[in-house]
Design a protein around this nucleic acid. Structure first.
Lengths: 216, 216
DNA sequence: GAGTATTCTCTACAATCATAGAATAAAAAA
DNA sequence: TTTTTTATTCTATGATTGTAGAGAATACTC
């Protein structure tokens, strides 16, 4: 018997190479030849693992989504309420180089999904997953009195969704200008808005933060 | 002398055709042939007006941006403070079919800008324009006591920017599911968060809205 | 109505791409 | 070593693209 290759693992290697190429040269630079070269192979070597380019891309996008979702689930597991909500958002925000690269992948993905129902559905299902998670944490935060804002939970979840997606664009378009610290401050500021009582207390000078804000 | 064509006007016609093609078939379907056909011409007719495809696309994107910015400026002109801020955001949000189509254009634009410095700069300058406008209105709103939240203006502007961009994605990806009414509610809810005193008053049953929110 | 400057059509070309498949290489078993 | 099976390379093909430019069509002037 000859050289044996673990097909599943090889597929992941190819997906990884695809990921790197898109992050580096954009989706337009992600040709089969480039991807093969990045993975260390010649032109036609991809076919046994992905018969068409579309299958490769779909699989690659799906894998990035799964990985992200898994990482998010891990990070917010064991936490509840506001703490879990914050951890969730921090894991989605492009706060380090890896996640800025993910933002550089998801934008081409969105563009493809605009005219590709299969990819649109992948996005839809992932976003619904996020929505459900955030809604759950938000309800916990309400029960614990960590959120008192007189605004519907649905609106809050939608605001968070929009902000998380918008942050991908902002970070991908001008990295270095909108730094992790700024995105984090933005998130903290928003979560602060969800507890007006707490916030009012701060404004009355009862806490450390208020002095920072007021003196700004 | 022969048939005389207004070149500037013709360019705008071609840009409009480009706009329609991208909205309908995505950026991948926007070939020179398709665009020419959409405008009612044959393959080579575009060259006298746009020597290369890149020039056409750059001009088209720039024009959509200018038009949007002009529309925004018109809509918020004559208004101040919170009212101006709300008008501004409502004009950016994809609340009707035209603006949902604009969202279907801006996503391919972002994707292109990821690897095209000229387009990235166009985006940067437009976003800075938006930022400055919102910051001005926000300051007015502070002065008028319409915004009392103990959160830095910069964070608020960033939150709004993220939300406005994120809403483009959400609306473009699943139109019909996230309706104008929902986006409007989302915006109103956010602006409400910026005035905790006002909000607290509502929560104490002093206004009509509170009963809606509380009974939800 | 002839002439002419402009506009547009049409065909052609070179480049690039995904894909196909024959040929080759590699490695384990006999 | 030889055989056999799998993996990979390499070349080819057809389709699509942006771009170029010759020629036809057009509409205005004289």
């Amino acid at each position: 018997m000859p050289k044996i290759v673990n097909h599943d693992q090889r597929r992941l290697e190819l997906v990884d190479a695809t990921w790197r190429i898109i992050a580096r040269h954009g989706i337009e630079g992600a040709t089969m030849r480039e991807i093969a070269a990045e993975a260390g192979f010649a032109n036609g070597a991809l076919k046994p693992y992905f018969p068409t380019k579309d299958e490769l891309l779909t699989f690659a996008f799906g894998h990035v989504f799964n990985r992200t979702n898994q990482r998010i689930a891990d990070m917010s597991a064991g936490k509840v309420g506001m703490e879990a909500l914050r951890a969730f958002c921090q894991e989605v925000l492009p706060l380090d180089e890896d996640r800025i690269n993910e933002a550089r992948i998801v934008i081409p993905f969105w563009q493809k999904a605009l005219t590709d129902p299969a990819k649109a559905e992948l996005h839809e299902s992932s976003m619904n997953q996020w929505r459900a998670a955030m809604e759950g944490y938000l309800r916990q935060a309400r029960d614990r009195g960590e959120v008192t804002a007189a605004v519907g939970d649905e609106d809050i979840v939608n605001q968070l969704m929009s902000m998380l997606l918008g942050a991908q664009i902002i970070a991908a378009m001008s990295p270095g200008e909108h730094l992790p610290a700024q995105l984090n401050a933005q998130l903290d500021a928003y979560l602060l808005l969800l507890n007006p009582a707490d916030e009012t207390a701060r404004r009355q000078g009862q806490t450390f933060y208020s002095t920072i804000v007021e003196n700004k």
